[in-house]
């Protein structure tokens, strides 16, 4: 198992390297003049050239690539072209917001989605099942920006209950968290329901019932654990994506997260910021996937057994 974990961790490095080189090349080759973008069209050419020289964009591609990796290895993520502040400071300031948004929204989505998914599976074909699955279908199809703007219109503009800006107070977090959670909750509800339905029809569940186990034990102890495997994968994938910054939600709610920051940097051709954000995003995604794989090993004894020392058991 340890060998498996180490192998997976080591695989992250070449993945990251490839991603960085590709992104750097694309950005370096795309037309752009950060000096002019920052100073504006009325700035003198000498000022623009001086700023471009300061940023190092007038150097050859390979020199720039080498300098970038050299600085990265020393912990220098570069200075943002637009804000002229170290990129790592910006990321450090914004990442907690993205992390909190991701955790709160995924937590909320998991609670709502899994709980309701179990209920609808147990109460298949009931009115509650039909209503909840219909709502889930609508929410899954609805783009999050639409729900976000609709929520702002109702709860902020018309009712005045909640602010749109998260920096005003804790109430400013409610709408972004709910908006980010709903789409995932709907997907989790449907996935949990399908997975539970498949699981509770298994032979071992019938055996458990035949042996006299009460329904609560059958569902929570026997069925749920197996039914949750695909749900965990889905949740982890979405969490990984959210950690990269839910751009749409962040843009709609002026949320000071990493996604918003990265998109703004791309538009401004702020190369150090884009590179650093990509690095962070890729690393996080790989780590999340790694954690999911490790979690699988603990949840599913078949996977764990496959990797126990000295033996490779066939299922």
């Amino acid at each position: 198992m340890i060998k498996y974990v180490i192998k997976r961790i080591l695989m992250v490095i070449p993945t990251m390297l490839a991603v960085l080189i590709i992104i750097f090349t694309i950005l370096a080759l795309s037309p752009g003049n950060p000096g002019r973008l920052i100073l504006g069209s009325t700035a003198r050419q000498e000022q623009v050239d001086a700023l471009n020289h300061q940023f190092g964009v007038d150097q050859p591609f390979l020199t720039r690539l080498w300098n970038y990796f050299r600085d990265l290895l020393h912990g220098d993520f570069g200075t943002s072209y637009t804000s002229q502040t170290p990129v790592i400071n910006e990321i450090k300031g914004r990442f907690p917001y993205t992390l909190k948004l991701a955790l709160y929204s995924m937590g909320l989505a998991a609670v709502i989605g899994i709980a309701l998914g179990i209920i609808t599976a147990i109460r298949q074909y009931s009115i509650m099942d039909n209503v909840l699955t219909s709502i889930a279908m609508i929410l899954a199809a609805m783009p999050s920006f639409f729900f976000g703007m609709f929520a702002i219109y109702i709860f902020s503009l018309k009712l005045g209950w909640l602010p749109t800006n998260s920096s005003m107070s804790w109430k400013g977090w409610i709408l972004p968290v709910v908006t980010a959670a709903l789409n995932t909750a709907a997907a989790l509800l449907r996935l949990t329901r399908a997975s539970m339905l498949e699981t509770i029809r298994s032979d071992y569940i019938r055996t458990a019932r035949a042996k006299g186990a009460d329904e609560r034990t059958v569902i929570w102890k026997h069925a749920l654990r197996n039914a949750l495997m695909p749900v965990i994968t889905s949740l982890a994938l979405r969490l990984g994506g959210m950690l990269g910054g839910s751009v749409v939600v962040e843009k709609v709610f002026n949320f000071p997260g990493l996604g918003n920051y990265t998109v703004t940097a791309v538009q401004a051709k702020d190369m150090p910021t884009v590179m650093s954000s990509t690095l962070i995003l890729s690393t996080l995604f790989c780590l999340v996937m790694l954690l999911v794989d490790i979690a699988y090993g603990f949840i599913d004894p078949r996977i764990r057994a496959r990797y126990t020392t000295g033996s490779r058991q066939r299922s």
């Binding site: 702002i152 902020s156 800006n165 709609v252």
Partner: peptide, 18 residues
């Protein structure tokens, strides 16, 4: 001062009294 990056959110903020 609070940051509102796009015109839509600025107009909602001023219209709602935020």
């Amino acid at each position: 001062g609070y940051v509102y990056e796009d015109e839509y959110s600025r107009s909602i903020a001023i219209e709602s009294g935020e």
